[in-house]
Design a protein around this nucleic acid. Structure first.
Length: 858
RNA sequence: GGGCGCUUAGCUCAGUUGGCUAGAGCAUCUGCUUUACACGCAGAGGGUCAAAGGUUCGAGUCCUUUAGCGCCCACCA
C-alpha cells in the first residue's frame, strides 16, 4: 500500500490483480501427496452454456467460504469445478439459434452428426463464459481439475455405468406410458414435469348405449345411466377420439346393468365397451370414466387389465393423427371436437374446472402421456441410501430436508433415462434384428444399428463426485466433505449421487449437504430470464466489487430460507468494505505519526481485545454449523461497532499501534473467506505477511479473558454526553462543560478525561461526587454516573427528557419488583437469574432517585 | 389429499438450548465538510413479536388450534 492510498476502496484496481496472482502461484491447486488432512467439495456443475445468475453467486460464495476457511485451518483443500452438458437445455438453445440464423427449420435438416458439430462449436465458443465469471467472483476452484460431463474420460465412465447396470439387471427397456414433451419431442422423467394449477373445463359428454337385441329386465335402481346413455366428464375432450371403453366402479349399483354392454362413441361412430374397474371413484362426477388407453396413464393401466386396444390419435409432436383430424394441433382439435359434440347434441354441459396440468420443465408446454419404447432404471442402493440420511451418516442442513428426501426415497419409482435428443451420451446399445448388444464398443459383424437415444443429463451428473477424480485424487479427497446446492435438485441430483456413490464406491459421496435458499427478487418472485428480474452479477461486481456483492448477500442468506435480493444489499456490502479500507488508512496514518506505542495496554485496548476474542468464538462456531449469515453479522458488528466506532475513536487520543495491528490483522483473517480480494490487498499492503493471506492461520480464541465493567460504563457516559449535546441543539463545534457525578469508577473516569474531553468535544469535564446543579442543568443518568452539561439552556427540553427517563425507569422498576416479589420466581428460577434481577433492582432504584431529584430541582 | 416452511419496526430480515429495557440494515426525522471513511459521524422516532388457548416462576422462543401467504409431493377423469 503506497502512501497516497485512495479515500475510497476501488475493487477494480485489486481484484483481477490478485486473482491472477493466486492462479500463477497455484494456491488453489490441490496436492494429493500433501500430508495435510483433506477437505473437498465438488461444485454443482453449471450448464456449460449458462451465464452466472444470482443463484450461482450465492451457491459458489458459500462454497468458497468453506474452502477458504479450511485452507486457513490447515487442510489440503480441493474444490473441484466443472460444467454440465445439460442435454435438453443446451440442445434447445443451439437449435433455436440455428433456426434464427436460418440454418435449419428442424434439427433433422442437418442430421445428427452435422448438428452435433454445431453444438460443439457452440460449446467451444460460449462454454467458458460461466467459468470466467466464477473467477470474477473470486472462487478458489482448482481449475487444473476442471471437468466437463462430456469429456472423454467422463463419458466413458457414464457408458460403463450404463453397461454395468444393464448387466446387473437394473436397466431395462420397455414400451410404457411416459411423460412426453411434444415441443422437445422427447421423453422426460417424472421429476422434469412441473405440475401447475390450471384453469380448464370439465366437459360432460353423452355416450349412447347400444340397444340389446335381447330384451333384459331392467333393475329398478335410480340415477342416470339406466336409460339410453351414460355421461362421462373429461378435461381433454380431444382424447375421446381414442376412447376404447367407459369404466365404472365394479360395485356401483347405478351401473351394474351396463357392465359388459356397448356404447356408441360419438363422432367416431364406433362401439366401445363398458368395463368395471376398481380404479374408478364412484363419488367423482357421474362415476363413469372414459378410457383412452394410449393417452392417459390411468387409462393405460386399466386397458392393460382389460386387454383393450391402444388406439393412438395424437402424434409425438402433439399433432393429431386420427383420421378426419390429421394435422390438427391437439388444442385446436379440442375446440373442434367440442363444437362437433355440441352440434351432435352429445355435449351435456361445460363446467369451469381448476386442475393440475403437467408442464415440461424445459419447454414449458403441457406434457402428453405417450406410449413409447424407452429405457428405464430401477435404482440401486435404495435402502442403504435412505438409511444413510435417516441415521445422519449424511447430514442435511437444514435438517428438515431429510423428510423430503426420505419421502421421495420411500416412494421411489423407476427412472426413464432415455431421451430422444442428440446432445448427450448415446446409449451404448446396438440392435440387429431380434438381437440386442450392450457394451462399450460397437459389436463386430454387419448390420448392427446403435440406439439413437441419449441418456438423461442427470444420468451423468450422478457420478460427479467421483467420476471427476483420477486415482490419486480419489484416494486423497474422496469421499468429499461438503456439498452446497439448492433444494430444487434434491431428487434430480443429491439423492441420485448418494445411490451412485454407494453402488460404485461403496461409500457415501459426501458427509454434509447444505441446502441454500432460492434467490427471489424484491417482490418475492423467482428470478428468471423471461421476467428479466435477475440482475447480472457481473454488473453488480463492477459496481460494488466482488467482495461487496458476496458480503452483502451473505448477510441476508440465512440457513435454507429463501432470499429476497435487492441491489441495496450489495451497497451494504460495498460500504462495509469501504469501512474496512478506511480503518486501514487510519492505521497507516498512525504509523506515520510520531506517537510511539505505549508499553502497557489501557482499558480500550483490553476491551477491544476482549470483544475480538468473542468475535472469533462466535464466527468460528457459526461457520462450523453453516450459519453463514450469523458469522457475517458478528464480523460486521465487531468491525463497525467495537473496532471503528469505539476503538479507533479512542485511538485518536491514546493510540496503541501494536494493538491496532493485532486486531486489524485478525479481522482480515476472519473476513478473508467472505471477502478474499480486499483482505489480500490489505494483508499485503499493511505488511502483515509477505505471502498470501490464504494460508494464514484461522484465528484461535483465547480462554479465560474477562471483561471489566469499567469500559462499558465509560462508553455509556459518552453516549449520555452526546445525547445531551444533540437534544439541546448544541452546535457541534461549540466546546461545552460537562460534570460527571459518578457512583463508581471515579479513578478510572479521571484517568479517561482526555478521551472524554476529545470525544465529547468538551471545553472541560469535572469529575465530582458532590456536584449539585444550579438552575437548569441538563443531565442524563447512567449506570455509573450522572452526566451534566453545564450552561445550557431550555428547561422545557430538560423536563421532557427527565420525565421520559423517569417513566422508563419506573416501567422497568415495576417489572423487576414484580418479578422479585414473586415467590415462585425467587425459589424456582436459576440463582444467577435471581441475582441478576436483584442487581438490576438496586441500580434502578438508585437511578430513579437521581432522576426524581433532578426533576424536582428544576 | 398429504408434507414442509413463513407471519417480529414503513420495507427486508436476525433473534442459539425459554431469562437483562425484542435487535440490524434500508427508509424517515434532527444536526454535522469532527484531520480513516458523506460508501461517513452523532442523536431521535417507530413493534400488544399473525390470532386464540395451554405449559412454566417466566414465552418472540415450547405445545395445541385457527387464519393468511409460499413451496414440495400425489394418475380422481
Amino acid at each position: 500500500m503506497s502512501a497516497e492510498i485512495s479515500k475510497a476502496y476501488e475493487p477494480k484496481l485489486v481484484e483481477d490483480k490478485w486473482y491472477a496472482e493466486w492462479l500463477s502461484q497455484g494456491h488453489f491447486t490441490a496436492n494429493p501427496a500433501s500430508s495435510k488432512p483433506p477437505y473437498s467439495i465438488v461444485i454443482p456443475p453449471p450448464n456449460v452454456t449458462g451465464v452466472l445468475t444470482m443463484g450461482h453467486v450465492l451457491n459458489n460464495t458459500l462454497q468458497d467460504i468453506l474452502a477458504r476457511r479450511k485452507r486457513m485451518q490447515g487442510y489440503e483443500v480441493l474444490w473441484l469445478p466443472g460444467t454440465d452438458h445439460a442435454g435438453i437445455a443446451t440442445q434447445t438453445v443451439v437449435e433455436k439459434t440455428l433456426k434464427k440464423q436460418g440454418v435449419l427449420k428442424h434439427r433433422d435438416d442437418l442430421g445428427r452428426d452435422k448438428f452435433l458439430e454445431k453444438v460443439w462449436e457452440w460449446k467451444e465458443k460460449h462454454g467458458g463464459i460461466i467459468i470466467q465469471q466464477l473467477k470474477k467472483l473470486g472462487c478458489s476452484c482448482d481449475w487444473t481439475r476442471e471437468r466437463f460431463t462430456m469429456d472423454e474420460d467422463y463419458s466413458q465412465a457414464v457408458l460403463r455405468t450404463f453397461v454395468d447396470l444393464y448387466q446387473k439387471g437394473y436397466i431395462y427397456r420397455g414400451k410404457r406410458m411416459v411423460n412426453w414433451d411434444p415441443a422437445g419431442r422427447t421423453a422426460l422423467s417424472d421429476e422434469e414435469v412441473i405440475m401447475t394449477e390450471t384453469q380448464g373445463h370439465l366437459w360432460h359428454i353423452k355416450y349412447a348405449v347400444t340397444p340389446l337385441t335381447l330384451t333384459l329386465s331392467r333393475p329398478t335402481g335410480e340415477g342416470q345411466g339406466e336409460g339410453d346413455f351414460v355421461i362421462v366428464a373429461t378435461t381433454r375432450p380431444e382424447t375421446m377420439l381414442g376412447d376404447e371403453a367407459v369404466a365404472v366402479h365394479p360395485e356401483d349399483p347405478r351401473y351394474q346393468h351396463l357392465i359388459g354392454r356397448k356404447l356408441m362413441l360419438p363422432l367416431q361412430n364406433r362401439e366401445i365397451l363398458v368395463i368395471a374397474d376398481a380404479a374408478v371413484d364412484p363419488k367423482f362426477g357421474t362415476g363413469c370414466v372414459k378410457v383412452t388407453p394410449a393417452h392417459d396413464v390411468a387409462d393405460y393401466e386399466m386397458a392393460l387389465r382389460h386387454k383393450l386396444p391402444f388406439t393412438v390419435v395424437i402424434g409425438p409432436d402433439g399433432i393429431m393423427t386420427v383420421a378426419g383430424y390429421e394435422g390438427l394441433d391437439r388444442f385446436k382439435c379440442r375446440e373442434l371436437v367440442v363444437e362437433q359434440l355440441q352440434a351432435a347434441g352429445a355435449l351435456v354441459k361445460v363446467e369451469d374446472y381448476t386442475h393440475n396440468v403437467g408442464y415440461s420443465e424445459r419447454t414449458n408446454v403441457p406434457i402428453e402421456p405417450y406410449l413409447s419404447e424407452q429405457w428405464f432404471l430401477r435404482y440401486p442402493q435404495v435402502p442403504r441410501s435412505t438409511a444413510a440420511v435417516d441415521s445422519g451418516t449424511i447430514k442435511f442442513y437444514p435438517e428438515r430436508w431429510q423428510k423430503t428426501y426420505t419421502h421421495w426415497m420411500r416412494n421411489i419409482r423407476d427412472w426413464c433415462i432415455s431421451r430422444q435428443l442428440w446432445w448427450g451420451h448415446r446409449i451404448p446399445v446396438w440392435y440387429r434384428g431380434e438381437e440386442i448388444y450392450c457394451g462399450l464398443e460397437t459389436p463386430t459383424g454387419d448390420g448392427w444399428r446403435q440406439d439413437s437415444d441419449v441418456l438423461d443429463t442427470w444420468f451423468s451428473s450422478w457420478l460427479w463426485p467421483f467420476a471427476t477424480m483420477d486415482a490419486a485424487t480419489l484416494k486423497k479427497f474422496y469421499p468429499t466433505n461438503d456439498l452446497v446446492t439448492g433444494p430444487d435438485i434434491i431428487f434430480f441430483w443429491v439423492a441420485r449421487m448418494i445411490m451412485a456413490g454407494y453402488e460404485y464406491t461403496d461409500s457415501q459421496p459426501f458427509a454434509n449437504v447444505y441446502f441454500t435458499g432460492i434467490i427471489r427478487d424484491a417482490q418475492g418472485r423467482k428470478m428468471s430470464k423471461s421476467l428479466g428480474n435477475s440482475p447480472d452479477p457481473l454488473d453488480l461486481i463492477a459496481k460494488y466489487g466482488a467482495d461487496g456483492l458476496r458480503f452483502g448477500l451473505m448477510l441476508i442468506a440465512p440457513q435454507g430460507q429463501d432470499i429476497l435480493f435487492d441491489e441495496k444489499r450489495s451497497e451494504v456490502g460495498r460500504n462495509f468494505m469501504n469501512k474496512l479500507w478506511n480503518a486501514a488508512r487510519f492505521i497507516q496514518m498512525q504509523r506515520g505519526s510520531a506517537g510511539a506505542s505505549p508499553s502497557h495496554r489501557n482499558a480500550h485496548d483490553h476491551r477491544v481485545l476482549f470483544e475480538l476474542n468473542g468475535a472469533i468464538i462466535k464466527t468460528t462456531a457459526a461457520l462450523d454449523e453453516y450459519r453463514f449469515n450469523e458469522a457475517a453479522k458478528v464480523l460486521y458488528d465487531f468491525v463497525w461497532g467495537d473496532f471503528c466506532d469505539w476503538y479507533i475513536e479512542a485511538s485518536k487520543v491514546t493510540p496503541n499501534l501494536a494493538v491496532l495491528d493485532e486486531v486489524f490483522q485478525t479481522i482480515l483473517r476472519l473476513l478473508h473467506p467472505y471477502a478474499p480480494f480486499i483482505t489480500e490487498e490489505l494483508w499485503r499492503g499493511m505488511g502483515y505477511g509477505a505471502d498470501t493471506i490464504q494460508f494464514a492461520l484461522w484465528p484461535k480464541a483465547q480462554t479465560g479473558l474477562s471483561s471489566s465493567p469499567e469500559t462499558p460504563a465509560l462508553y455509556a457516559i459518552v453516549t449520555a454526553g452526546r445525547q445531551l449535546r444533540n437534544e439541546n441543539g448544541v452546535d457541534p463545534k461549540k466546546k461545552v462543560q460537562f460534570v460527571i457525578k459518578p457512583t463508581q469508577h471515579d479513578d478510572f473516569l479521571r484517568q479517561e478525561l482526555p478521551f472524554l474531553t476529545q470525544i465529547l468535544s468538551a471545553e472541560s469535564i469535572a469529575i465530582d461526587r458532590n456536584y449539585t446543579p444550579t438552575g437548569v442543568t441538563p443531565s442524563v443518568v447512567t449506570g455509573a454516573a450522572t452526566v451534566f452539561m453545564v450552561g445550557a439552556v431550555d428547561p422545557a427540553t430538560e423536563k421532557l427528557r427527565l420525565t421520559k427517563q423517569l417513566a422508563d425507569t419506573d416501567k422497568q422498576l415495576a417489572a423487576t419488583e414484580a418479578k422479585l416479589a414473586n415467590e415462585s420466581f425467587v425459589s424456582r428460577a436459576a440463582p444467577v437469574a435471581v441475582e441478576r434481577e436483584r442487581e438490576k433492582l438496586k441500580t434502578l432504584r438508585e437511578q430513579r432517585e437521581k432522576v426524581l431529584a433532578l426533576l424536582q430541582s428544576l
